[in-house]
Design a protein around this nucleic acid. Structure first.
Length: 623
RNA sequence: GGGGACGUAGCUCAGUUGGUUAGAGCGCUGCCCUGUCACGGCAGAGGUCGCGAGUUCGAGCCUCGUCGUCCCCGCCA
């Protein structure tokens, strides 16, 4: 079809803004044809842009030329309509559309562009084929749901940036081409042309730079920072992702919490959700005890210690390890399950943790009536609640440490708790329709509108996790590894144990979890060189190695480093939560697949020999 | 690296115990229609059943392999 030139024509309004009050005005709208309804001598076009949809009327008697073009127009053609805003007759009003009281009585129609037939249409309701969505991402992104997600992302980002600026933070950019940093993930490497055989690394986070900015006296830094980690992807993990990264000088842990709570609340407010501050706090040990997880979902009931419900004889008869935790998990309102239904759940239980479970209460009640009653009572279980007991399995003793430090949990205990915690969240996912705890979040997300904040206290439950162990023992490498990163400061009270009892040392680091997802983490850093050296020593990192990997940073530490600390929160995850999206791909414009492929641009690819040669690289594929 | 689910028309899906010519809705094409808004009516096109082997008289259906997408474990502080 013959396309029209735009000429001097200028758009006067968007497709979502015209109302009855505009009646009589001559307007120019431009957008995509969402749908076309052809009645012969009368054609209706729904014109769509990111603001909404307006009905365009082409009447053969009034605009024979425009009507003739309209006969050939198809969905997703790009058109401009000149015409008068006219009130619809009462019986023609469409109450489902914000613009439903008016329509455009078209006097001129310009066809600005046509389109090939895409494998799906933005007006389609059911499009689930992610392969096709990602390949034709530009069509997918036209869908109102996606437009909404990116509007949301923009609003949240803007609010956070503005809030941090108001809190006195300076946004400072740090390099993308840098040096391998000490986080635990695999680096993306960039070969250097000017330095044969040498590589830059993409930052896993701006960690070292932000600490150096503190040494540089910037006092409060933040950045909406792109980070890169070459690890396998998940629904909530992409190769590149965005963090709200900040660092400040002279803070207590509580200071960082306050700053983060404020900017997060500002971000949520921009999405129409009120977050209550301060957020609750819980230690790592307590979180494991109460939820079996270091990223607890507070929308669900926690674990209950039901050890008191059993006598020693009970435990012996049930073959439960009396020295390990005996806990109950409860999923509300599941109702009675058949043996088959219960058995279908069994694969969700992680047997590798050396724990076992009892989910047949009828049978338990037969053999141990008092204990069965007591367990449900302790767990606060209503009649319809599904209760499962999780305990240590003496017959399946896995290799783990029994060592305990003054009221802290042993590795073996943690294993039992986390087996229970994983089972808890797996079953909660499965029975979401019954307990309804997740539905609350979905509803808030659906109803939330900027300017009309809804109470998110039930729907979004943030919690700080504190006092993580400083080190984790890596059995494979037979050495202690930093649980956070090696610049995290230890608790001052635990410093004496650094070399003697590494497992007992707590770190000044913290995570923020929300609805069972880790939103981010941070720490108070080491600012003294002597402490840093002790940490390296207990990690078994030699002076030479430390010097080679981050000598520049050790140098910097010697030039008047203030006490400092900070945090980084995953922006994509925040938006994902507030968009009610099932994966990060819904809130990242051009994401990669689970196999790390960009289906639209088709990356990665091979490169030319010439390119490789310049970079002093030779490819050696394993055959 | 490992486990699982899925793969049939452009999209969403059905396809009986392995049995004749593989279906539906939407979309698409053509024609008709002046008040529709998920418009309607009539007619039509559209399939290497992901790919490759194998079993079988016969495979969309069974077996093995392979590729792709998704989910999970490992991995990711």
């Amino acid at each position: 079809m013959i396309l029209d030139f735009l000429g001097d024509l200028e758009r006067t309004h968007s497709c979502g803004e015209l109302r009855a009050s505009h009646a009589g005005q001559i307007v120019v709208l431009m957008g995509w044809v969402n749908r076309r309804r052809d009645h012969g001598n009368l054609i209706f076009l729904d014109l769509r842009d990111r603001s909404g949809i307006t009905q365009i009327v082409l009447d053969k008697e009034l605009v024979p030329e425009g009507h003739a073009k309209g006969e050939h127009v198809r969905p997703e053609y790009v058109v401009a309509a000149v015409g008068k805003v006219s009130l619809r007759d009462a019986d023609a009003i469409n109450p489902k559309m914000p613009t439903g009281e008016i329509e455009i009585e078209t006097t001129e129609l310009l066809v600005l562009n046509d389109t090939r037939l895409a494998p799906f249409s933005p007006s389609d309701e059911a499009i689930q084929n992610e392969e096709v969505r990602l390949k034709y991402r530009y069509v997918d992104l036209r869908r109102p749901e996606m437009q909404h997600n990116f509007r949301l992302r923009h609003d949240i980002t803007l609010a956070i940036r503005d809030n941090l600026s108001q809190q006195g933070f300076l946004e400072i950019e740090t390099p993308i081409l840098t040096k391998s940093t000490p986080e635990g993930a695999r680096d993306f490497l960039v070969p250097s042309r000017l330095h044969a055989g040498e590589f830059y690394a993409l930052p896993q986070s701006p960690q070292i730079f932000k600490q150096i900015l503190m040494i540089s006296g910037f006092d409060k830094y933040f950045q909406i920072a792109r980070c890169f980690r070459d690890e396998d992807l998940r629904a909530d993990r992409q190769l590149e992702f965005t963090q709200v990264d900040l660092e400040m000088s002279f803070p207590r842990q509580e200071t960082v919490f306050g700053v983060a709570e404020q900017f997060l609340a500002a971000g949520f407010k921009a999405a129409g959700v009120t977050l209550l501050t301060p957020f609750p706090r819980i230690t790592y040990d307590e979180s494991m005890r109460r939820f079996g997880s270091d990223k607890p979902d507070l929308r669900l009931p926690g674990l209950t210690d039901v050890r008191p419900a059993f006598t020693d004889e009970n435990l012996a008869a049930l073959q439960i390890d009396p020295a390990l935790p005996v806990v109950a998990l409860r999923i509300p309102n599941v109702g009675e399950l058949s043996r088959k239904e219960r058995e279908d759940n069994h694969p969700s239980f992680d047997l590798k943790k050396g724990a076992k479970f009892i989910d047949d209460f009828k049978r338990l009640a037969k053999g141990f009536p008092e204990a069965a009653v007591k367990v449900r009572e302790l767990a606060g279980a209503a009649e319809a609640d599904f209760v499962i007991i999780v305990a240590g399995d003496p017959a399946h003793h896995i290799k783990a440490s029994d060592t305990k430090f003054e009221g802290r949990l042993s590795e073996r205990e943690i294993n039992v708790y986390s087996a229970a915690g994983n089972f808890r969240t797996e079953l909660a996912k499965k029975y979401a329709d019954k307990h309804g705890a997740f539905g609350v979040t979905e509803k808030v997300v659906k109803d939330a509108e900027p300017g009309a904040p809804v109470d998110g206290a039930q729907a979004f439950q943030p919690i700080w996790i504190t006092d993580f162990p400083m080190f984790e023992y890596d059995a494979a490498l037979a050495k202690w590894m930093p649980a956070h990163h090696p610049f995290t400061s230890p608790h001052e009270a635990d410093m004496a144990n650094l070399l003697t009892d590494p497992a007992s040392v707590r770190a000044n680091c913290y995570d923020l979890a929300m609805n069972g997802m880790e939103l981010g983490s941070g720490s108070i850093r080491i600012h003294r060189k002597d402490v840093q050296q002790q940490i390296f020593q207990s990690l078994g990192i030699s002076d030479e190695e430390a010097r080679a990997r981050f000598g520049f940073f050790l140098d910097a530490l010697e030039y008047g480093t203030p006490p400092h600390g900070g945090i980084a929160l995953g922006l994509d995850r925040i938006v994902m939560l507030l968009a009610g999206a099932p994966s990060l791909r819904e809130v990242i414009a051009f994401p990669k697949t689970a196999k790390a492929i960009d289906l639209m641009v088709e990356a990665p690819t091979t490169v030319t020999e010439q390119q490789l040669k310049e970079l002093h690289i030779r490819v050696a594929l394993k055959s």
